[in-house]
Design a protein around this nucleic acid. Structure first.
Lengths: 193, 193
DNA sequence: TTAATTTCTTGTTTTAGGTCAAGTGTCAAC
DNA sequence: GTTGACACTTGACCTAAAACAAGAAATTAA
Protein backbone atom coordinates (compact mmCIF):
# COMPACT_ATOMS: atom_id res chain seq x y z
CA UNK A 1 0.00 0.00 0.00
CA UNK A 2 2.45 2.64 1.22
CA UNK A 3 5.15 1.29 -1.06
CA UNK A 4 3.43 2.68 -4.18
CA UNK A 5 2.82 5.85 -2.23
CA UNK A 6 6.39 6.44 -1.12
CA UNK A 7 7.88 5.45 -4.42
CA UNK A 8 5.94 8.36 -5.92
CA UNK A 9 6.94 10.79 -3.23
CA UNK A 10 10.59 9.74 -3.19
CA UNK A 11 10.74 10.38 -6.93
CA UNK A 12 10.39 14.08 -6.07
CA UNK A 13 11.89 14.56 -2.57
CA UNK A 14 14.01 12.69 0.01
CA UNK A 15 12.60 11.48 3.32
CA UNK A 16 14.11 9.88 6.44
CA UNK A 17 12.51 6.75 7.90
CA UNK A 18 11.21 8.84 10.80
CA UNK A 19 9.57 11.28 8.41
CA UNK A 20 8.01 8.42 6.47
CA UNK A 21 6.52 7.05 9.68
CA UNK A 22 5.10 10.46 10.58
CA UNK A 23 3.61 10.93 7.13
CA UNK A 24 2.04 7.46 7.17
CA UNK A 25 0.31 8.28 10.42
CA UNK A 26 -1.68 11.07 8.74
CA UNK A 27 -3.19 8.81 6.09
CA UNK A 28 -6.11 6.40 6.23
CA UNK A 29 -6.75 3.50 3.88
CA UNK A 30 -10.09 3.59 2.13
CA UNK A 31 -11.47 0.91 -0.20
CA UNK A 32 -14.08 1.71 -2.80
CA UNK A 33 -16.15 -0.73 -4.85
CA UNK A 34 -16.85 -0.03 -8.50
CA UNK A 35 -19.47 2.77 -8.86
CA UNK A 36 -19.15 3.79 -5.22
CA UNK A 37 -18.94 7.51 -4.48
CA UNK A 38 -15.99 9.12 -2.79
CA UNK A 39 -17.61 12.54 -3.01
CA UNK A 40 -20.97 13.87 -4.10
CA UNK A 41 -21.65 17.35 -5.43
CA UNK A 42 -22.88 19.65 -2.67
CA UNK A 43 -20.95 17.94 0.14
CA UNK A 44 -17.73 19.42 1.45
CA UNK A 45 -14.76 17.47 0.12
CA UNK A 46 -13.17 16.02 3.25
CA UNK A 47 -10.29 14.13 1.68
CA UNK A 48 -7.43 14.45 -0.67
CA UNK A 49 -6.73 10.91 -1.88
CA UNK A 50 -3.76 9.11 -3.34
CA UNK A 51 -4.80 6.24 -5.58
CA UNK A 52 -2.80 3.15 -4.63
CA UNK A 53 -4.88 0.82 -6.77
CA UNK A 54 -7.83 1.12 -9.16
CA UNK A 55 -9.38 3.90 -11.18
CA UNK A 56 -11.59 6.87 -10.30
CA UNK A 57 -13.15 9.77 -12.09
CA UNK A 58 -14.30 13.24 -11.08
CA UNK A 59 -17.04 15.00 -12.99
CA UNK A 60 -19.78 17.57 -12.72
CA UNK A 61 -23.39 17.25 -13.79
CA UNK A 62 -25.08 20.13 -15.61
CA UNK A 63 -28.71 21.23 -15.30
CA UNK A 64 -29.66 18.96 -18.22
CA UNK A 65 -28.27 16.00 -16.30
CA UNK A 66 -25.27 15.54 -18.60
CA UNK A 67 -21.97 14.54 -17.02
CA UNK A 68 -18.72 16.32 -17.85
CA UNK A 69 -15.54 14.44 -16.97
CA UNK A 70 -13.06 16.56 -15.12
CA UNK A 71 -10.31 14.01 -14.62
CA UNK A 72 -9.42 10.35 -14.23
CA UNK A 73 -7.04 9.06 -11.58
CA UNK A 74 -5.35 5.69 -11.33
CA UNK A 75 -2.31 4.26 -9.51
CA UNK A 76 0.03 7.06 -8.51
CA UNK A 77 -2.44 9.93 -8.99
CA UNK A 78 -4.08 12.19 -6.46
CA UNK A 79 -7.76 13.00 -6.62
CA UNK A 80 -9.93 15.52 -4.78
CA UNK A 81 -12.15 18.52 -5.34
CA UNK A 82 -9.28 20.87 -4.58
CA UNK A 83 -11.44 23.95 -4.43
CA UNK A 84 -13.74 22.40 -1.85
CA UNK A 85 -10.97 20.62 0.05
CA UNK A 86 -8.91 23.76 0.61
CA UNK A 87 -11.71 26.30 0.97
CA UNK A 88 -14.31 24.22 2.84
CA UNK A 89 -17.01 25.24 0.37
CA UNK A 90 -19.42 22.84 -1.25
CA UNK A 91 -17.98 20.58 -3.92
CA UNK A 92 -19.01 21.06 -7.55
CA UNK A 93 -17.58 17.68 -8.52
CA UNK A 94 -18.68 14.12 -7.98
CA UNK A 95 -15.96 11.53 -7.54
CA UNK A 96 -16.61 7.82 -7.91
CA UNK A 97 -14.77 4.60 -8.66
CA UNK A 98 -14.73 3.21 -12.20
CA UNK A 99 -12.93 0.09 -10.91
CA UNK A 100 -12.58 -1.32 -7.39
CA UNK A 101 -9.98 0.94 -5.80
CA UNK A 102 -7.75 1.48 -2.80
CA UNK A 103 -6.98 4.97 -1.60
CA UNK A 104 -4.81 6.67 0.97
CA UNK A 105 -6.78 9.63 2.25
CA UNK A 106 -5.83 12.67 4.29
CA UNK A 107 -8.07 15.36 5.79
CA UNK A 108 -7.52 19.08 5.47
CA UNK A 109 -6.47 19.48 9.10
CA UNK A 110 -3.99 16.63 8.82
CA UNK A 111 -2.69 18.00 5.55
CA UNK A 112 -1.96 21.32 7.24
CA UNK A 113 -0.31 19.62 10.18
CA UNK A 114 1.74 17.38 7.93
CA UNK A 115 3.15 20.26 5.86
CA UNK A 116 4.01 22.17 9.03
CA UNK A 117 5.72 19.18 10.63
CA UNK A 118 7.42 17.97 7.44
CA UNK A 119 8.19 21.07 5.38
CA UNK A 120 9.65 19.03 2.55
CA UNK A 121 6.07 17.95 1.82
CA UNK A 122 5.42 21.54 0.77
CA UNK A 123 8.13 20.97 -1.81
CA UNK A 124 6.55 17.69 -2.87
CA UNK A 125 3.17 19.31 -3.35
CA UNK A 126 4.70 22.36 -4.98
CA UNK A 127 6.17 20.03 -7.61
CA UNK A 128 2.97 17.99 -7.85
CA UNK A 129 0.77 21.06 -8.33
CA UNK A 130 3.29 22.58 -10.71
CA UNK A 131 3.06 19.52 -12.96
CA UNK A 132 -0.73 19.39 -12.68
CA UNK A 133 -0.86 23.00 -13.69
CA UNK A 134 1.17 22.34 -16.83
CA UNK A 135 -1.10 19.42 -17.74
CA UNK A 136 -4.22 21.42 -17.06
CA UNK A 137 -2.91 24.35 -19.11
CA UNK A 138 -2.30 22.05 -22.03
CA UNK A 139 -5.80 20.67 -21.81
CA UNK A 140 -7.37 24.11 -21.48
CA UNK A 141 -5.42 25.30 -24.50
CA UNK A 142 -6.62 22.34 -26.54
CA UNK A 143 -10.17 22.90 -25.34
CA UNK A 144 -10.14 26.53 -26.52
CA UNK A 145 -7.99 26.22 -29.63
CA UNK A 146 -8.68 22.84 -31.19
CA UNK A 147 -11.59 21.47 -33.20
CA UNK A 148 -13.04 18.13 -32.05
CA UNK A 149 -10.76 16.02 -34.21
CA UNK A 150 -7.56 17.74 -33.03
CA UNK A 151 -8.69 17.41 -29.42
CA UNK A 152 -8.88 13.67 -29.84
CA UNK A 153 -5.59 13.44 -31.72
CA UNK A 154 -3.85 15.48 -29.04
CA UNK A 155 -5.28 13.22 -26.37
CA UNK A 156 -3.94 10.12 -28.08
CA UNK A 157 -0.57 11.86 -28.14
CA UNK A 158 -0.40 13.20 -24.59
CA UNK A 159 -2.58 10.75 -22.66
CA UNK A 160 -2.50 7.39 -24.44
CA UNK A 161 -3.30 5.67 -21.11
CA UNK A 162 -6.69 7.36 -21.10
CA UNK A 163 -7.47 6.02 -24.58
CA UNK A 164 -6.59 2.50 -23.47
CA UNK A 165 -8.21 2.43 -20.10
CA UNK A 166 -11.33 4.60 -20.28
CA UNK A 167 -14.64 3.80 -22.06
CA UNK A 168 -15.31 5.88 -25.12
CA UNK A 169 -18.37 7.70 -23.82
CA UNK A 170 -16.30 8.98 -20.88
CA UNK A 171 -13.47 10.04 -23.18
CA UNK A 172 -15.98 12.00 -25.26
CA UNK A 173 -17.22 13.73 -22.14
CA UNK A 174 -13.63 14.46 -21.09
CA UNK A 175 -13.02 16.14 -24.44
CA UNK A 176 -16.29 18.07 -24.29
CA UNK A 177 -17.80 16.35 -27.34
CA UNK A 178 -20.60 13.80 -27.77
CA UNK A 179 -19.96 10.04 -28.06
CA UNK A 180 -21.44 10.18 -31.58
CA UNK A 181 -18.93 12.80 -32.70
CA UNK A 182 -16.07 10.79 -31.20
CA UNK A 183 -17.28 7.67 -32.98
CA UNK A 184 -17.27 9.51 -36.31
CA UNK A 185 -13.83 10.98 -35.65
CA UNK A 186 -12.38 7.54 -34.95
CA UNK A 187 -13.91 6.21 -38.14
CA UNK A 188 -12.47 9.08 -40.14
CA UNK A 189 -9.00 8.63 -38.64
CA UNK A 190 -9.12 4.89 -39.31
CA UNK A 191 -9.69 5.60 -43.02
CA UNK A 192 -6.37 7.46 -43.35
CA UNK A 193 -4.31 4.50 -42.23
CA UNK B 1 8.96 47.68 -6.45
CA UNK B 2 9.68 44.94 -3.92
CA UNK B 3 7.02 46.29 -1.57
CA UNK B 4 4.19 45.01 -3.83
CA UNK B 5 6.14 41.80 -4.20
CA UNK B 6 6.65 41.11 -0.51
CA UNK B 7 3.17 42.14 0.44
CA UNK B 8 1.93 39.32 -1.79
CA UNK B 9 4.38 36.80 -0.44
CA UNK B 10 3.85 37.77 3.20
CA UNK B 11 0.12 37.22 2.71
CA UNK B 12 0.95 33.51 2.40
CA UNK B 13 4.13 32.89 4.43
CA UNK B 14 6.39 34.65 6.99
CA UNK B 15 9.90 35.80 6.18
CA UNK B 16 12.74 37.29 8.22
CA UNK B 17 14.51 40.43 6.97
CA UNK B 18 17.53 38.31 6.10
CA UNK B 19 15.41 35.96 4.04
CA UNK B 20 13.80 38.90 2.26
CA UNK B 21 17.24 40.23 1.34
CA UNK B 22 18.30 36.82 0.00
CA UNK B 23 15.14 36.49 -2.05
CA UNK B 24 15.52 39.99 -3.49
CA UNK B 25 18.99 39.13 -4.70
CA UNK B 26 17.59 36.43 -7.02
CA UNK B 27 15.27 38.78 -8.87
CA UNK B 28 15.94 41.27 -11.64
CA UNK B 29 13.80 44.25 -12.59
CA UNK B 30 12.60 44.29 -16.16
CA UNK B 31 10.59 47.07 -17.84
CA UNK B 32 8.42 46.41 -20.84
CA UNK B 33 6.78 48.94 -23.13
CA UNK B 34 3.28 48.36 -24.43
CA UNK B 35 3.28 45.65 -27.16
CA UNK B 36 6.80 44.53 -26.31
CA UNK B 37 7.41 40.77 -26.08
CA UNK B 38 8.58 39.04 -22.93
CA UNK B 39 8.55 35.66 -24.68
CA UNK B 40 7.99 34.45 -28.21
CA UNK B 41 6.71 31.02 -29.19
CA UNK B 42 9.58 28.68 -30.04
CA UNK B 43 12.08 30.28 -27.63
CA UNK B 44 12.82 28.67 -24.28
CA UNK B 45 11.07 30.58 -21.50
CA UNK B 46 13.94 31.92 -19.39
CA UNK B 47 11.95 33.77 -16.74
CA UNK B 48 9.17 33.45 -14.32
CA UNK B 49 7.95 36.99 -13.71
CA UNK B 50 6.08 38.76 -10.97
CA UNK B 51 4.08 41.71 -12.27
CA UNK B 52 4.78 44.72 -10.04
CA UNK B 53 3.05 47.15 -12.39
CA UNK B 54 1.16 46.99 -15.67
CA UNK B 55 -0.64 44.30 -17.61
CA UNK B 56 0.52 41.37 -19.73
CA UNK B 57 -1.05 38.54 -21.64
CA UNK B 58 0.04 35.08 -22.72
CA UNK B 59 -1.45 33.45 -25.78
CA UNK B 60 -0.80 30.94 -28.51
CA UNK B 61 -1.29 31.38 -32.23
CA UNK B 62 -2.87 28.59 -34.27
CA UNK B 63 -2.01 27.58 -37.83
CA UNK B 64 -4.67 29.95 -39.18
CA UNK B 65 -2.94 32.81 -37.40
CA UNK B 66 -5.67 33.26 -34.79
CA UNK B 67 -4.63 34.13 -31.25
CA UNK B 68 -6.00 32.29 -28.24
CA UNK B 69 -5.59 34.05 -24.92
CA UNK B 70 -4.21 31.83 -22.23
CA UNK B 71 -4.10 34.31 -19.36
CA UNK B 72 -3.79 37.91 -18.32
CA UNK B 73 -1.53 39.09 -15.51
CA UNK B 74 -1.46 42.42 -13.70
CA UNK B 75 -0.14 43.73 -10.36
CA UNK B 76 0.40 40.83 -7.99
CA UNK B 77 0.25 38.03 -10.58
CA UNK B 78 2.98 35.77 -11.88
CA UNK B 79 3.41 35.04 -15.56
CA UNK B 80 5.51 32.53 -17.47
CA UNK B 81 5.25 29.61 -19.85
CA UNK B 82 5.48 27.17 -16.96
CA UNK B 83 5.91 24.14 -19.15
CA UNK B 84 8.86 25.66 -20.97
CA UNK B 85 10.33 27.33 -17.87
CA UNK B 86 10.48 24.13 -15.85
CA UNK B 87 11.23 21.64 -18.63
CA UNK B 88 13.54 23.76 -20.81
CA UNK B 89 11.53 22.86 -23.91
CA UNK B 90 10.34 25.37 -26.48
CA UNK B 91 7.52 27.66 -25.42
CA UNK B 92 4.11 27.30 -27.05
CA UNK B 93 2.99 30.67 -25.68
CA UNK B 94 3.78 34.23 -26.57
CA UNK B 95 3.84 36.75 -23.75
CA UNK B 96 3.65 40.49 -24.34
CA UNK B 97 2.69 43.68 -22.56
CA UNK B 98 -0.78 45.15 -23.04
CA UNK B 99 0.27 48.19 -20.98
CA UNK B 100 3.72 49.50 -20.01
CA UNK B 101 4.82 47.15 -17.27
CA UNK B 102 7.41 46.47 -14.59
CA UNK B 103 8.39 42.92 -13.75
CA UNK B 104 10.54 41.11 -11.23
CA UNK B 105 12.05 38.17 -13.05
CA UNK B 106 13.83 35.05 -11.87
CA UNK B 107 15.64 32.39 -13.92
CA UNK B 108 15.13 28.67 -13.55
CA UNK B 109 18.54 28.13 -11.91
CA UNK B 110 17.92 30.93 -9.43
CA UNK B 111 14.45 29.62 -8.73
CA UNK B 112 15.92 26.23 -7.82
CA UNK B 113 18.59 27.81 -5.66
CA UNK B 114 16.10 30.07 -3.94
CA UNK B 115 13.76 27.22 -2.97
CA UNK B 116 16.69 25.19 -1.66
CA UNK B 117 18.07 28.11 0.36
CA UNK B 118 14.68 29.36 1.57
CA UNK B 119 12.45 26.29 1.90
CA UNK B 120 9.46 28.37 2.93
CA UNK B 121 9.35 29.55 -0.68
CA UNK B 122 8.34 26.01 -1.59
CA UNK B 123 5.36 26.57 0.67
CA UNK B 124 4.64 29.92 -0.97
CA UNK B 125 4.69 28.39 -4.44
CA UNK B 126 2.76 25.34 -3.27
CA UNK B 127 -0.01 27.71 -2.19
CA UNK B 128 0.32 29.82 -5.32
CA UNK B 129 0.13 26.82 -7.66
CA UNK B 130 -2.67 25.32 -5.61
CA UNK B 131 -4.76 28.43 -6.11
CA UNK B 132 -3.88 28.64 -9.80
CA UNK B 133 -4.93 25.05 -10.18
CA UNK B 134 -8.35 25.76 -8.67
CA UNK B 135 -8.81 28.75 -10.97
CA UNK B 136 -7.67 26.80 -14.01
CA UNK B 137 -9.98 23.90 -13.13
CA UNK B 138 -12.90 26.26 -12.90
CA UNK B 139 -12.08 27.71 -16.28
CA UNK B 140 -11.59 24.31 -17.88
CA UNK B 141 -14.91 23.17 -16.49
CA UNK B 142 -16.66 26.21 -17.90
CA UNK B 143 -14.93 25.72 -21.23
CA UNK B 144 -16.19 22.13 -21.51
CA UNK B 145 -19.60 22.47 -19.88
CA UNK B 146 -20.94 25.91 -20.72
CA UNK B 147 -22.40 27.43 -23.85
CA UNK B 148 -20.95 30.78 -24.96
CA UNK B 149 -23.39 32.88 -22.95
CA UNK B 150 -22.78 31.00 -19.69
CA UNK B 151 -19.03 31.27 -20.21
CA UNK B 152 -19.33 35.03 -20.32
CA UNK B 153 -21.69 35.21 -17.36
CA UNK B 154 -19.37 33.02 -15.30
CA UNK B 155 -16.45 35.25 -16.22
CA UNK B 156 -18.28 38.37 -15.05
CA UNK B 157 -18.91 36.54 -11.79
CA UNK B 158 -15.46 35.08 -11.11
CA UNK B 159 -13.16 37.55 -12.88
CA UNK B 160 -14.85 40.95 -12.97
CA UNK B 161 -11.41 42.63 -13.18
CA UNK B 162 -10.90 41.04 -16.59
CA UNK B 163 -14.17 42.48 -17.86
CA UNK B 164 -13.15 45.95 -16.72
CA UNK B 165 -9.56 45.98 -17.79
CA UNK B 166 -9.29 43.90 -20.96
CA UNK B 167 -10.49 44.82 -24.49
CA UNK B 168 -13.46 42.83 -25.65
CA UNK B 169 -11.74 41.06 -28.54
CA UNK B 170 -9.19 39.65 -26.08
CA UNK B 171 -11.92 38.57 -23.68
CA UNK B 172 -13.65 36.74 -26.54
CA UNK B 173 -10.41 34.96 -27.35
CA UNK B 174 -9.95 34.09 -23.66
CA UNK B 175 -13.40 32.50 -23.64
CA UNK B 176 -12.78 30.69 -26.91
CA UNK B 177 -15.52 32.52 -28.81
CA UNK B 178 -15.46 35.17 -31.54
CA UNK B 179 -15.73 38.90 -30.81
CA UNK B 180 -18.98 38.93 -32.82
CA UNK B 181 -20.56 36.29 -30.63
CA UNK B 182 -19.46 38.16 -27.52
CA UNK B 183 -20.93 41.38 -28.84
CA UNK B 184 -24.28 39.67 -29.41
CA UNK B 185 -24.21 38.07 -25.98
CA UNK B 186 -23.64 41.43 -24.32
CA UNK B 187 -26.52 42.91 -26.26
CA UNK B 188 -28.78 40.06 -25.25
CA UNK B 189 -27.83 40.34 -21.58
CA UNK B 190 -28.36 44.12 -21.64
CA UNK B 191 -31.95 43.56 -22.78
CA UNK B 192 -32.84 41.62 -19.62
CA UNK B 193 -31.92 44.44 -17.30
C1' DT C 1 -9.34 68.47 -35.47
C1' DT C 2 -8.61 65.55 -38.67
C1' DA C 3 -6.85 61.35 -40.21
C1' DA C 4 -5.89 56.67 -39.03
C1' DT C 5 -6.11 52.67 -36.58
C1' DT C 6 -8.47 49.82 -33.55
C1' DT C 7 -12.63 48.16 -31.21
C1' DC C 8 -17.25 46.99 -31.38
C1' DT C 9 -21.78 46.15 -33.63
C1' DT C 10 -25.07 44.25 -36.84
C1' DG C 11 -26.75 41.44 -40.82
C1' DT C 12 -26.33 37.29 -43.72
C1' DT C 13 -24.57 32.80 -44.84
C1' DT C 14 -22.27 28.56 -43.70
C1' DT C 15 -20.71 24.75 -41.02
C1' DA C 16 -19.22 21.79 -37.23
C1' DG C 17 -21.04 19.41 -34.08
C1' DG C 18 -25.27 18.40 -31.34
C1' DT C 19 -29.70 15.92 -31.00
C1' DC C 20 -32.71 12.24 -31.86
C1' DA C 21 -33.52 7.70 -33.33
C1' DA C 22 -32.63 3.18 -34.77
C1' DG C 23 -29.54 0.05 -35.17
C1' DT C 24 -25.36 -3.78 -34.09
C1' DG C 25 -22.01 -6.07 -31.04
C1' DT C 26 -20.58 -7.93 -26.66
C1' DC C 27 -20.59 -9.72 -22.34
C1' DA C 28 -22.49 -11.18 -17.80
C1' DA C 29 -26.57 -13.05 -15.32
C1' DC C 30 -30.22 -15.99 -14.88
C1' DG D 1 -29.44 -20.14 -24.83
C1' DT D 2 -32.23 -16.10 -23.80
C1' DT D 3 -32.48 -11.52 -21.55
C1' DG D 4 -30.91 -7.48 -20.36
C1' DA D 5 -27.57 -3.87 -19.82
C1' DC D 6 -23.91 -1.30 -21.93
C1' DA D 7 -20.84 0.33 -25.42
C1' DC D 8 -20.47 1.79 -29.81
C1' DT D 9 -22.01 3.01 -34.72
C1' DT D 10 -24.61 5.15 -38.36
C1' DG D 11 -28.03 8.08 -40.49
C1' DA D 12 -31.17 12.23 -40.86
C1' DC D 13 -32.02 16.52 -39.21
C1' DC D 14 -31.24 20.88 -36.53
C1' DT D 15 -28.97 24.65 -34.20
C1' DA D 16 -25.42 27.52 -32.01
C1' DA D 17 -21.74 29.77 -33.16
C1' DA D 18 -18.21 30.70 -36.85
C1' DA D 19 -17.15 33.14 -41.05
C1' DC D 20 -17.69 36.73 -43.91
C1' DA D 21 -18.83 41.46 -44.80
C1' DA D 22 -19.62 46.14 -43.95
C1' DG D 23 -20.28 49.98 -41.12
C1' DA D 24 -20.32 52.72 -36.55
C1' DA D 25 -17.92 54.20 -32.54
C1' DA D 26 -14.10 55.08 -29.98
C1' DT D 27 -9.02 55.78 -29.25
C1' DT D 28 -4.63 57.31 -30.70
C1' DA D 29 -1.49 59.87 -33.43
C1' DA D 30 -0.09 63.54 -36.42
Amino acid sequence: MFDVFFSHILAKVSLTEAEKATIESFFTLKKLRKKQYLLQEGEVCKYMSFVAKGLLRSYNVDEKGDEHMHMFAWEGWWISDMSSFFSGEKAVFNIDAIENSELLTITRADFEEMTLKIPVMDRYFRLLFQNSLVTKERRLLSSITDAAEEKYIRLTKYSPEIIQRIPQNLIASYLGITPETLSRIKKKIALYK
